[in-house]
């Protein structure tokens, strides 16, 4: 495979390498985005559960493996702050994803042109 690659013109090799790099970056961005989305869902669920509880309910916050008593108001504020931060992060990752996909599409088109065999004259 590497021998065949070596036979390609250097600029095509460069493009193929760039394509692989972009695909890896896209995978990494997608994994991060998924992680952020999972965390956001969890926060939204926790906020919705907190909303249903009475103000005097005893609430605990995890600090490492310990559970420490906390106030509902403070916990809700912390969760909302975290939610806002994660929403911003999700937007940034979404834009990154969009940009990488566009770059990938352009590169794939170029590579298809580079690698397409010369059509035989009929």
């Amino acid at each position: 495979m590497s021998d065949e690659l070596a036979k390609l013109p250097p600029e095509v090799q460069q493009r193929l390498l760039r394509l692989q790099q972009l695909q890896q970056t896209l995978q990494s961005v997608l994994a991060q985005k998924q992680q952020v989305e999972i965390e956001l869902t969890e926060i939204e669920q926790a906020l919705s559960e907190l909303q249903k509880t009475a103000d005097d309910t005893v609430i605990y916050k995890a600090i490492g493996s310990l559970l420490v008593k906390a106030e509902k108001e403070k916990v809700t504020a912390d969760l909302n702050e975290r939610k806002e931060l994660l929403n911003t992060r999700a937007k940034v990752l979404g834009k990154q994803e969009e940009r990488i996909r566009t770059q990938l599409k352009e590169l794939q088109t170029k590579l298809q042109q580079d690698l397409s065999p010369v059509s035989p004259s009929t």
């Binding site: 926060i43 669920q45 926790a46 907190l50 609430i59 916050k61 995890a62 975290r82």
Partner: peptide
Amino acid sequence: VIVGMGAGISVE
């Protein structure tokens, strides 16, 4: 009983 609600929050 302390029940976990996710996001590191547990409720009695």
